[in-house]
Each structure stands twice: as C-alpha cells, then as structure tokens.
Design a protein around this nucleic acid. Structure first.
Lengths: 200, 200
DNA sequence: ATTTTTACTATACAAATGTTCATTTTAATT
DNA sequence: AATTAAAATGAACATTTGTATAGTAAAAAT
C-alpha cells in the first residue's frame, strides 16, 4: 500500500524530481542534504522513508541510483468505520478494510481515511446509503464545510458552522433540525473531501 | 570534420545507453570497466573520448553523471530535382531521393531541400557536375548571395543582385554573360546553404 | 618509416558518496 | 501533560567512484 508523505518528505521528493529533471541524473544524499541545509544522515533518513513508502527506487550502496516510481493514480486509504449521516452512530466500529481513491481527491498532505455511510439522512447532499465518504483528518474546518464530528459520543456528518463559542451543525436533510451547542461539546475529526459510490 | 566513433567507443556508448535504459541511472566508470573486463583507467579514457566527441555529457567528479546527448549529426533532406547551374533546365524533374546533410549546415528553422547539379557551368564557384546543392526555401535573398531562381521557366543557380526593380543574375562562369532583367521576371526559390559532393 | 591515436595494464590516491551510532530537538497525537 | 513519530545533529566509517602516474602494445594515419 502506498502511504502518504509528510510535508518535508514531499519537499524532498520534489527536489529529487526537479534535480533529475534538470541534470538527467539523480542527486546524491549530500546534494539533498546541502539543499535543505541538513546533515547527510538527515537526508538519508528521508530517502529511506521515500523508498519505504514506494515513491522512489534505488540500489543500496550505489551512488545516485534513485529513480522515481511512477505515481499511481489511486491510493488506498483505510475504512475506519461506519457513519450515520443523520443520527450518528456509536463511535468507531472498526472495519478492517481499505478502499482505493483517486489521487486527485487528495490535496497536499495529511492523513486520509474513509467511512461508510449508513442511512439516507444525507440524501439532500447527494450522499447515499452505502457510499464511502473520504475524509481528511483535521480538527478544525472552515465555516460551511461538511465535516465528520463527534457529538454526544456519536459520530455524524454535518455542515459545520462556528460562531464565537457556539457551533451549529446542519444536516443536509430538511426533516432534521440543526443542532446548536457549545464548541466544547463538539469535536471535529475530519473534513469531507470526496465520496465514492459503487453501484452493484 | 565529423567526429566519428571507433568501433570500441561505439560499443561503450551502446553499453552506457542500455545501462541507462535498464537502470534509470548511468553506469559508473567501474561498471563500464567490469562489463568490458578492462581496468577503470581504460574505461575512463573511453568516457573522456565520448565526452570530447560530444556523444555524452557529464560533470567531472560527480559519480554516475553521464547523460546522453542525442542530437543527430546529420539530417536527411529531399532531393527535389536537378539543376543546371548555367543554362537552367526545365523545372522540377522530380527525383524520389533523400540525402543526408550535416546538421551544422542548417541554421535555425526552415524548409531545406537539395538539387542535383548537371553540367559544369558553376565550376568557377567550385560547384561541379553531380554535386548536390542544399537550399533553404526562401523567396528573398540578400545581394550577392547565391540562390536558385526561376527565370524564363527554367531553374538555375546564380549569384543574385537586386537594385530598384532590376535584377542581375551573375553566373559563376566567365564564359557566360550576366543576365539583367526586371524583378518580375525572376522568382527566387531558395538560398544556397551548402553543397555535398560524393566522389565515387 | 615515423608519428599519432587508440586501447589498454597495474597501482594508487583522493574525493564523493552511502551508511551507521548514539542523541537531541521538534512537531504532532493521544 | 504525556507519548509517539518525525526530523535532525555530529562525528565517524566504509565503499564507491573519479582520477592520476607511468608505462606497454597494437592499430591507424601521415
């Protein structure tokens, strides 16, 4: 499974890419170290990480032997559990599963995961029963975005509004009333970045 | 002078090429030495020769920094017909043929073609019967340049002078008189950029 | 015939490069 | 606040790698 890169690792990969682009051969460990003003050891660790995560290939003990692995157009993320978009369900019923999502769904870096939707309460937002919602793990979201939040010990998918120390959670379903509560009662766990629907 | 490779140098170049093809990075001097069962010094000399002759580029003191310079030293242009440098001959007797010309004969962009010379009337310009004249297709030339022109429905190679609305076509042969005529009677079809002579 | 170029050997040196150890600092997560 | 992971240091070590010296031998060019 291809894993996500940290910001620094991405920068290192970008440097390697452009170095190869410019020079026609790959940088040495020390070329990388010099560029980022770190020690060879530091650069080495990054290279090992990139190799481990499958972004580059190289031959140990061979100088400048880094080659870029072709970027896959999909990436696999863990399905962490189920989510009832309306009512909310008990927190993470763990599912040992992964789902492939298109790489373009991912912007920048971070930890991504999926939840499987149960019920039709997000139908007005065109999210159906059985859909996988793809979330970027983060604990703050901008006003108006759809986020997975924990409220009253239940995990639920809502449009999120923040004002002062009050939070409004709006379901995408006219039949369900918005929830207004204190910011302390709500914990955001991820921002909605996409959905995957698979028809049988 | 054309920098041609010796057989051994060609083999070394081929090895480098296929090594890069296979591994994605260039061989070290010792990789080459091992492959040909020679010493590093021997391999090094080959690499220096290839570099000097312009077939590869590299950075001194940088390991595995060989890159291939894949610029062809010749290019093929169509032989469009025959030309009688003195009298002119009937326009394009089409010949289905191509000729390789050195890349350095070409400056910038443009449409290049060749004509095969018949007769000795350009002998004073050292253009002989059987030579290929290489032309850049253009419809204006500077004063004094040799150009292929159409005059009286015949194609001919002449030194070209323009003054007012009069044109003077000077053959490079004392026995033939210059032609002075109206600009409207002459059509330039190409500028002479080189000749190729092949001895039997 | 003489000179130059090419193709090599054997050994050695020095710079470049990959790698490791023991720790510390920083940042993110629980 | 405590814990974990990521990022980094600094000095050293071990290969790998490029390069040099000093020469031999054969082929190619003049």
């Amino acid at each position: 499974m291809i894993q996500h890169l940290t910001k620094k690792q991405k920068k290192v990969l970008d440097f390697i890419t452009s170095f190869i682009q410019q020079n026609g051969y790959s940088p040495s460990i020390r070329d990388i170290a010099r560029h980022f003003k770190i020690t060879p050891r530091g650069a080495h660790i990054h290279v090992l990480a990139l190799e481990k995560k499958g972004y580059i290939t190289r031959n140990p003990n061979r100088s400048r032997s880094i080659t870029l692995t072709k970027r896959p157009e999909s990436i696999s993320v863990p399905v962490k559990g189920k989510i009832a978009a309306g009512q909310g369900i008990e927190m993470f019923e763990v599912i040992d599963e992964e789902i492939e999502i298109p790489i373009r769904m991912i912007k920048g870096f971070g930890d991504y995961f999926a939840l499987k939707v149960e019920g039709d309460s997000m139908i007005d937002a065109h999210i159906l029963d059985g859909d996988f919602v793809i979330l970027k793990r983060q604990y703050k979201v901008a006003n108006g975005q759809i986020a997975a939040v924990v409220y009253q010990n239940k995990i639920t998918l809502k449009r999120f509004f923040h004002k002062g120390d009050k939070v409004t959670l709006v379901p995408e379903n006219k039949n369900i009333e918005p929830i207004i509560c204190n910011a302390t009662e709500v914990r955001v766990i991820g921002k909605l970045v996409g959905i995957i629907r698979i028809y049988e």
